[in-house]
Design a protein around this nucleic acid. Structure first.
Lengths: 158, 158
DNA sequence: ATCGGTGAGTCGCTTCACGCAACTCACTGG
DNA sequence: CCAGTGAGTTGCGTGAAGCGACTCACCGAT
């Protein structure tokens, strides 16, 4: 992104954002998720410039979020597919879509739905406790310094 | 963000990203979530410039994601707090942190943990089907055009 | 009464990423 | 042989972000 990266941050979030936090990247991932996999298709759908799309796709492929795969030879043409690592980001896309629909609704209703493949029901993102397996409300989530915390934070319980 | 916005997009995701998709914004939200609520505290923690922090905080307050609240008079000093709307974004922050730890681990371990307030167990983001209430693997999630879909997309089942 | 310090911002300059539009290049089908 | 297509690359201008210094209101100590 711009200028210096977030590198001095001892932060898992910052490292994620180096890869998927740039402008257009989430929109590209959503488009690939819904089946728009080809360069010109993405340009047309997003209105992103070809230069920027090239840069983003290159980074996402290098980071193993997308896979670039030829769908024909002579002339060689390519499609971009989500890897397993990339599919792990789809809950984020889902939650952002849900949040946008909730707080900034389109009059016509949401343009795209996420559904449970098979059952057909709507999909939501949720918190789950890895210990007691309860589903959690955002208010029930607290933070604590982890093992890699800088010393300055060790005493900050909230 | 830069130049024209994503406005021509009929897209819930784009509208969310207009608010929380800019550089630094997610990091600011995480810091507020973990209790760094004051201007200079955020500058020191993030390394963001004061100018940019001012802009981001102003937008987040205007959009109702954060609340600016005086914690003392004379001299008047302020803290930023998440609103309910802002807390709805925390699963996204959580999933990004989880993803970063998983794929780009710190040698010392994650610097910050999300825990279930009370139980103390680790928190994960998950998909849940609103109809059959099953927890879903990312591969079990498909997309379909919604009621507000542009005509060009109506026939694109995947 | 002054002096240094703090919290919360502004201001001005520079640089780098993005927007725009045109161009390339390999190939194909009519 | 010429137009068209898919997948980019190139060059130029603008505006957002980085950097550091400055402001302004107030407080507490000398």
């Amino acid at each position: 992104m711009l200028g210096q990266d977030y590198a001095h941050q001892t932060c898992s979030l910052a490292r994620s954002l180096e890869v998927v936090g740039e402008r257009w990247t989430m929109l590209i991932l959503r488009d690939v998720l819904v089946g728009r996999r080809r360069f010109d298709e993405l340009v047309a759908s997003l209105g992103v410039t070809r230069t920027v799309l090239t840069q983003r796709l290159r980074l996402l492929v290098a980071e193993g979020v997308l896979e670039r795969r030829a769908y024909q030879q002579r002339p060689e043409r390519f499609e971009y597919h989500l890897t397993a690592k990339g599919r792990e980001l789809t809950p984020i896309v889902a939650q952002l879509m849900w949040w946008g629909d909730r707080h900034y609704p389109e009059p016509a209703g949401p343009p795209r739905l996420l559904v449970h493949d098979g059952c057909g029901g709507p999909v939501r993102a949720a918190y789950r406790c890895g210990a007691c397996h309860a589903e959690l409300h955002p208010d029930q989530v607290a933070t604590r310094p982890g093992p890699g915390a800088p010393a300055a934070d060790a005493d900050r319980p909230d």
